[in-house]
Design a protein around this nucleic acid. Structure first.
Lengths: 241, 241
DNA sequence: CCAAAAGTGTTCTCGGTACACCCATGT
DNA sequence: ACATGGGTGTACCGAGAACACTTTTGG
């Protein structure tokens, strides 16, 4: 039996013993590149995609589980990760998708399996430096890749809705806490870069002067040396304190 | 067997079949009276109190369950109720409290029961007109009553923490959405009443003039006739649109 | 008529807005 | 030198803060 089939079989047979029942986690992982906000998605079939998610070990906290699931997909630790909403409608069951996926891959299933039950899912959103993240698919999916948040493929279940809520929450947090936007950028960044990030997320142009003044007055960034070897006047580099 | 013992026995034996596993709901029910923010608490033993909470039926949405649990305790429907956080630490199990409570009441239990497992709890907060609410204890508790949020008795588990987070979230929402404070007042209320409510929640004095102007400019309240038969200049009554 | 509460107005300050101007660098 | 992007300054406006003043009621 191929390795991925073994892993899938193990999930079906061992999962009930290992994980909390009826609860799952969905991670909306945001990245930022070329003036566009991206979301990390997993490809289940030719046409269907889903959010990276998973289950909670019986002796694992929610936050720890969300971090583990995040690390499994992008190989990074200590990432900005925040719980934002719980999705608890009654129709939240993967039953159909799981059955067809597992059948397609030659792994026997049946409707009574724990994994076909209704799941309440806790949504977390993460902010990562897209250059450091290394997207890794798992045994159950074909691909793991970044997608512009404005042009998403068809997603399973209510995952389109989950991303929408995550983005709304991220926008609010970006307004409320000055430093969190920088989690989407490299350690060192320039004000114009941060400025473009904000303009992208809020989808509107913002005054350069005021933006710079507000960010510097907030006191959460420290100015480093000037960036060198760049066209035009060289900007300062900053780092979150 | 007395009725409350029957109900408790039924919960233990039937609960696993009826409810989602490992998930519960805790409701922080806020009321407001005599210049003080109150929380509804249930008394489990002579010295221990807890938040009203409960479990989710297998074919019931989270929001529906939270509303049902709320209605069971205060006999009111269509109440402002908002999910605010999920509490998912690994030590969240009522095991000890449940065992001693049930033993005390002469209902046999054992540690393997579903109810002794670890529970992830979704926190909701509610805003109610304290004059309309009729606190009703259930079969499992001695009392159900309002407590000033600043002087809480010892609570089970992390319920003190849950109330703290609920209050923080309520404060944020009160700042962000103009009308929600009025859910704590009767249908018709005066601006000075609303003003005192805000001063209580934020625990600081706020300028009368500016408060009134801001509230009226927000356009979410409609002015009714003047209140009569009251000492001093009679204030206008308002209603949320 | 007076005390107290309710309603409204005045002034000042501060932060947001729009825009202009200067600086630095690679072509 | 100049086009381009980066950094900072100025004048204006509106909302928030502190406080004053007027209005209404019961005693």
């Amino acid at each position: 039996m191929p390795q991925h089939q073994q892993a899938m079989h193990a999930l079906l047979t061992e999962g009930e013993r290992l994980f909390l029942s009826n609860i799952s986690i969905d991670n909306v992982i945001f990245g930022y590149a070329s003036n566009s906000l991206k979301v990390l998605l997993l490809q289940v079939t030719d046409t269907q995609w889903m959010l990276p998610g998973g289950y909670i070990f019986k002796n694992e906290s929610l936050d720890a589980a969300a971090n583990r699931i995040l690390e499994e997909r992008i190989a990074l630790r200590d990432i900005f990760l925040r719980q934002f909403h719980v999705f608890g409608e009654t129709d939240r069951s993967f039953s159909n998708e799981i059955t067809s996926l597992f059948n397609e891959l030659g792994v026997p299933t049946n409707p009574d399996l724990w994994i076909n039950q209704r799941f309440v899912s806790v949504g977390y959103y993460a902010l990562v430096d897209i250059n450091k993240a290394q997207p890794r698919p798992n045994q159950f999916v074909k691909a793991c890749s970044w997608h512009p948040v404005e042009e998403l493929p068809p997603l399973l279940l209510d995952h389109n809705e989950i991303i929408k809520v995550a983005k709304e929450r991220f926008r609010k947090d970006l307004n409320a806490y000055d430093a969190i936007g920088s989690h989407l950028l490299p350690d060192k960044f320039t004000m114009p870069e941060l400025h473009r990030l904000y303009e992208t997320v809020f989808d509107k142009s913002m005054d350069r002067s005021r933006f710079q003044k507000k960010m510097l007055d907030s006191g959460v960034f420290e100015r480093l040396h000037k960036k060198k070897g760049v066209a035009h006047r060289s900007p300062y580099l900053y780092r979150a304190k």
